Computed example of a mutant assay.
Amino acid sequence: MEALMRVTETFKSIRETRLSALRSPTEFFDVHRFSRPADTTQAVSRITYNTRYFSGNYTLIVLLLAVYAVITSPLLLIAVAFLFGGFALVNKFGPTEPFEIGNTVITQKLLYTTLFVIGLPLLWFASPFSTIFWIVGASSCLILAHAALTEPGVESEYATVQDSV
């Protein structure tokens, strides 16, 4: 239960810090502000500014790509559901005191061990690392392309004035 509270708190802090800075879709997809940067210096400047300015939108893109990757990989979805569901079931319904079924003593430790002996190979065959690398690659390509091609708004000129004050 405590782990669930920590996960809830983590999501709440992400929502408060990153997703509270969401920009409107009309501002994010404003095609009038898209242009090719003149040189690498201008591209780096745009990326630096836009990654801070659109951080909420970029976080949402990464989260949506992660959800898409898990949903479109059935074995990964089954493995993650098996591990999280099994963990929740053992926490909720697992025996606090050992009991015997036939000649076998069932303990909570045995249930966790069985869960991980079955779940971890299943997770390994689901190739989570390739999914993680796909999420990193796809999101970085999308984010860097958007950040480099989007011209900063007029407010970017005032951001440098505020930083120096």
Score class of each variant (00 low, 15 high):
M1Y: 08
E2L: 11
L4V: 11
L4W: 11
R6F: 08
V7Q: 13
V7W: 14
T8A: 07
E9M: 14
T10A: 13
F11V: 14
S13M: 10
R15C: 07
R15I: 06
R15K: 09
E16T: 12
E16W: 05
T17I: 07
R18H: 06
A21E: 12
R23T: 09
R23W: 08
R23N: 15
S24W: 09
S24D: 14
P25E: 01
F29L: 12
D30Y: 08
H32N: 13
R33V: 00
R33I: 00
R33K: 10
F34Q: 12
R36D: 13
R36W: 10
A38F: 12
A38N: 12
A38P: 00
D39H: 12
V44S: 08
S45M: 08
I47S: 05
Y49E: 02
N50A: 07
T51S: 14
F54H: 05
S55K: 03
G56N: 01
Y58M: 02
I61V: 13
I61D: 00
I61K: 02
V62M: 01
V62Q: 01
V62L: 02
L64Y: 07
L65D: 00
Y68L: 10
V70L: 13
V70I: 14
I71P: 00
I71A: 14
S73H: 11
S73A: 15
I78Y: 11
I78S: 13
A79T: 02
V80E: 10
V80L: 15
V80K: 13
A81N: 06
F82I: 02
F84S: 15
F84L: 15
F87L: 09
A88L: 13
K92G: 12
F93W: 05
F93K: 13
F93V: 09
G94F: 00
P95Y: 01
P95I: 04
T96G: 13
T96Q: 10
E97M: 05
E100D: 14
I101P: 09
G102Y: 09
N103S: 15
I106G: 00
Q108M: 13
K109T: 10
Y112L: 14
L115G: 05
V117E: 14
G119C: 04
L120D: 07
L122V: 06
L123V: 06
F125W: 04
F125E: 12
S127Y: 07
S130K: 07
T131D: 02
T131P: 00
T131I: 03
T131Q: 07
I132K: 09
S140K: 05
L142S: 10
L144D: 04
H146Y: 02
A147Y: 01
A148N: 04
L149E: 05
L149R: 08
L149I: 12
E151C: 05
P152Y: 05
G153A: 08
G153I: 02
V154P: 03
V154D: 10
E155F: 06
E155V: 09
E155M: 03
S156M: 07
Y158H: 15
A159D: 14
T160G: 15
T160N: 15
Q162L: 10
V165T: 08
